[in-house]
Amino acid sequence: MFEAIAFYLFAFLTIAMFSIAVLTSQALHAMTALAAGMIFISAFFFLLGADFIGVVQIIVYTGAVMALYAFGMMFFDTTRGVKEKNANSMIVFGLSGLAALMVVIIFVAPIVSENIGAFYPINEAVGNTQDVGMVLFTKYLVPFELAAVMLLVAMIAGIVLAGKKMDHSLTQMSEEEIELMRESNKKAQL
């Protein structure tokens, strides 16, 4: 009973918050609603017994991702001069059809796949965090390391892209302009 009440309460709150995030025209309202929705989603993870993912959700999304978005919003007046217009109707029709198809597949798929067995069963003897750690560092070690390398690449890309002296792009300059820039850089170093 408690689980049902919690599920419906958080489902309502999450849908309301994400609707605000999608439909409002104020960027600050959208960002705040999105951050609240992320925290409400972590409540589902705690309800489902996935404590570790719930904590990671709060730390990564509301801690890191939302801070980055706040940075992107407050250092640059990003909402200036952007008018929300009606999208191309063909794209709207296509995506709506795709969404409807997805709803049908999601309702049909549990009926089709009745005979699913657990690949890595949940170990009841230990807690969720310990269980996640044991599976992550044995069966999923290679994807874990690849994710670590991907995060490193993303971090370097973020530093390089948002760092200083990156406001001129080599891909949009002509060859002569690039040569001129190299010459001036050499002179500046001497």
Partner: peptide
């Protein structure tokens, strides 16, 4: 849960590169 974990990692790197 493992896949959800990797989806969160992908989302974090997407934000870093996208915001850059």
């Amino acid at each position: 849960q493992m896949f959800a974990f990797f989806v969160i990692a992908i989302a974090a790197s997407e934000v870093a590169v996208g915001l850059g």
